[in-house]
Amino acid sequence: MSPQSKLTTTTEAIRRFVHDGDTVYLGGFIQGEPYAAVHEIIRQRKKNLTISKVAGTDHIDLMIGAGCIKRLITSYLWNPVPKSAHAFRRAMEKGIPQSLELEEYPLLVMSLAYLAGSMGLPFVATKTMLGTGFVRHYSFLGEKKFKVIESPFDGEKVCLIPGLHHDVGIVQAQRADEWGNTQAWGILGSTKHGINSCKKIIVCAEEIVPSDTIRKDPNRTIIPGFRVNAVVEEPWGCYPSYMQGYYDRDFRFFPDYERQTRNVDSFQRYLEKWVYGVGNRQEYMEKIGRNRMEKLKAGERASTPVNYGDFTAFPELEYFSG
């Protein structure tokens, strides 16, 4: 029995699965940042979202400035030039356009919280965070942010981190089949456990490939299709971040974003030009221009294929039938 194809568009996937007030996990770590989906969330003017992101960059800044985010949980937020993320600073320092509730964990702790979330564990224990500002200050998680105890095994102090759970998660990966079996390679960050701690999953892929391509290399799969609700073919979906094997990072983008978003008016113009004034990712990339895309395209450097082996027949079957 062939299951129902989950292929759709980003517009439709966001409309169907991301609701005002949801807790939304966004995948990626410098590689594979889900820009296409983020722009669509802004275009659909989603509100009061709790965004969970292992490490936030300019696309989270864009959502803050556009007024989509009420709560944010992350390890940092900057424009990786490195420069300030201006909308984030305006929200934190002046409450513009609205104040932002920010809960902070360091990066490894975010990853551990996703691990616990994906496994349904109540908590994980770690030796990091002790003595830092992270255990002195908390925000919307309140006392549920962490707990320091003496380990029942060696009596030493440990920090317990609760699992993080999400209503919906979005990743941009290299390839998927139409049932959502999703493969990624390169620097993977915390995406596997982050996305697997979500109730609903949207996959945006650079390419939709025949299922056979996935099945010939199952080690590369980070999400099996049974966990996935929607699949979108969205080439260049994480531009200006990079996608291993597909395109490089557009290093020009980040200083440009920094310059163009320094005040509320210029930020608004930026949003109009690059998000509200664009229908979808394809239009956006046309606006970026063929020339620039051509320069960023990754050259060829293929791995040596591995042999998974053919295990169809029983070897030495005569032993059993004899």
């Binding site: 390890s75 940092y76 900057w78 360091p106 990066l107």
Partner: peptide, 15 residues
């Protein structure tokens, strides 16, 4: 003044 935050620096310094 609000700055970027830790990233992994805090964990790295702890361990």
């Amino acid at each position: 003044v609000r700055m970027a935050g830790s990233g992994g620096a805090s964990d790295l310094a702890c361990l």
